[in-house]
Write a protein that binds this DNA or RNA. Structure first.
Lengths: 225, 225
DNA sequence: TAATGTGAATTATTTCACAGCA
DNA sequence: TGCTGTGAAATAATTCACATTA
């Protein structure tokens, strides 16, 4: 009720005080990725139309997404690529390097560790935990694999983020430990719903679930029974 | 304009003729996963409230999701778990086993191949392709790894779905080949936007992009500059 | 002239509230 | 009584259209 009143008041205020759609936040990293690539290739200026073409996003969608945070472009000219990169980085709080703890060094955990795609956003895996005694103590990319029982010691290591790549059966215990250790954001790969306090943001990636949507969209399965 | 008129007409028609939200489709595999688990554990009947609790979904959300497709429950009683599993499977076209081709057997591809989570939805990886001569010809889980140049031969093998786990630089070529080979649905892990004809459904999973959203939601990064 | 920025309109999705059935 | 199914209301997100500015 109060929220509703605030929302109505906000309608007379400038764009930047409107509620920001979740979808907008999810698109920002994609803009950022393309813009960084463009900058590397020597493109200094780009229009919302061109930028959108790289991502299958309409020009007005891109402009509106940015407008929630301010006016970053120049009418008649477009956006300064470098400036826009800096602005989006700041919005997403990616302007400071983000330390990440990886939990689980099985097939998926190893793949994530080897994956270089995090670097462009300033993420760095600085701690790895596993439960397998054969892995504990070994080095992976100069990081010593630690026993999951040591997750609680993260408290003193200024790590806000964690990637959970353990089996579903172990996931809730791991998440509980991470929350206790002061981790504020979790990217979870276990295909199950995990309970966290409201202050801890959790984003789930469920590969099988995403795949399971595909057949629905396929006009006619080759031989439907 | 015409679409808008149809939509208005639809408002007087029963629920099942309404447009089905994409979000509903994305929730169906999650209901299915929980229901299968419950059934294995001997639960034969469940209410929308209990079902929702497992997934942090409101009871009315679950009921509305199902209502787009028909009336599967019994007022005052709830849903027959086995019956609901069968209905959702049918809606998602998961009632027939789905063959999947995996492209790319690097770190991520290997992890996907080893991941058992697909089985519950009836998926089976039946073909693997890679570009590395050292991998081509070897066996992985009884499947011979083939050269990517042979993707075009998929045409005769009744495979509708594919998982793409190759570097961004190779992804568009791979997708083009898959489209030519008659693949109808693609789950893409390469962090880039890929062009496909409208009739081919593509779902993207971008791990780094999802991670990049997390810091935004964290109240205050530990030392914001 | 060529682009941005943004109110307003439209469309999509969620939430509510309750009629109706076992 | 307890739970489903669903119109209607509320909320959220996208799309449009255009005033505005370099």
């Amino acid at each position: 009720m109060i929220v509703s009143t605030i929302m109505k008041l906000r309608k007379v205020l400038p764009m930047k005080f409107h509620k920001i759609p979740n979808e907008t936040i999810q698109r920002l990293p994609m803009y950022l990725r393309v813009l960084q690539l463009l900058y590397k290739q020597g493109t200094n200026n780009i229009s919302s139309l061109k930028l959108g073409e790289f991502l299958d996003v309409n020009s007005w969608q891109a402009r509106k997404d940015f407008s929630y945070f301010g006016s970053f472009g120049t009418p008649g000219v477009g956006y300064d690529v470098k400036k826009l990169v800096r602005q989006i980085s700041k919005i997403l709080k990616l302007n400071v390097a983000q330390k990440v703890a990886l939990i689980g060094l099985g097939n998926l955990g190893s793949a994530i560790q080897a994956y270089g795609g995090f670097n462009i956003y300033g993420f760095e895996v600085v701690a790895i935990f596993d439960i397998d005694p054969k892995k504990i103590g070994t080095k992976k990319n100069n990081i010593i694999v630690e026993n999951v029982s040591r997750i609680k010691l993260l408290k003193n290591r200024k790590i806000d983020l964690s990637i959970v790549a353990v089996p579903s059966s172990a996931a809730q215990d791991v998440v509980d430990a991470l929350v206790k250790a002061g981790v504020k954001g979790i990217l979870n790969f276990a295909p199950c719903h995990l309970k966290t306090p409201k202050k801890v943001k959790i984003i789930n990636i469920d590969i099988a679930t995403d795949l399971a949507c595909l057949p629905y969209y396929i006009p006619t399965a080759r031989r439907q029974r």
